[in-house]
Design a protein around this nucleic acid. Structure first.
Lengths: 117, 117
DNA sequence: GCTATCTATTGACAGCCGTCGATTCAATCG
DNA sequence: CGATTGAATCGACGGCTGTCAATAGATAGC
């Protein structure tokens, strides 16, 4: 992910001439940016980030009934955030009887993590 | 950042009893989650992520007039995204005459990067 | 079957977000 | 000064987001 940018010295240009040659960001990079931004967006709420933190740290499957009391939020709101995380591919869930157990899917974080590092 | 969660086997509880002891997420971790979520939120748009990518890769200060043509978006929109990145502490800018030069501030990514790794 | 329990879904609502056109502000050139 | 240019701000608009109360589905126990 890199772009050629000419750092030409800037002088006021004589009316009409474009500022600089249009630099194109290739499609591949655009798609990668979209994927990573989607992951970042899912992490862009403290509740979801904390939920994922708990699931990652726990290294097992955690019942929703243990996640809800971590926050002073209604159960539907937690359910909504878990759905956002699942839609982003960051977690998945499994039903056992009445209970739903969530667990982290670490792979989906890799691309963003690599880009950040 | 870690939480004690009892993974007690779930049985339907006999009416009235709470599901599980309320687990508290300490304030320190809450603030950390807020900081990291704010950074993630700023990265949660493909345009902003690409802008930061260009600034990070370029390792110098880049004129706004070179950033605008990277996207098929209006100049005010790019200016808005740059402001979001600056408000999040991810970039800063410097004016030289008519031009504004932006550059990345890598430090602000560190906490989130460490948490992801 | 009936009731209680856990989770997901729905509907509603306020507030935020991404985008643009128009405008403003600052600085440079003539 | 007056005209031009680069960038930021403003105002507006549709769409998305986070939240809750209410409800619905599914399952377990009686």
């Amino acid at each position: 992910m890199s772009v050629d940018l000419e750092l030409t010295p800037k002088t006021k240009r004589p009316a009409g001439e474009p500022c600089c040659a249009p630099v194109v960001y290739p499609d591949v990079q655009r798609e990668q940016a979209q994927r990573m931004a989607a992951v970042a967006k899912a992490l862009g709420d403290p509740v979801r980030l904390t939920l994922l933190d708990v699931l990652r740290k726990h290294a097992g499957k955690v019942c929703v009934c243990e996640l809800v009391p971590l926050f002073e939020l209604s159960q539907p709101t937690i359910s909504h955030h878990l759905k956002v995380l699942r839609d982003a591919g960051l977690v998945d869930s499994e039903r056992r009887g009445l209970w739903a157990y969530y667990y982290a899917l670490p792979e989906r974080l890799e691309e963003l993590t690599a880009w950040l590092s």
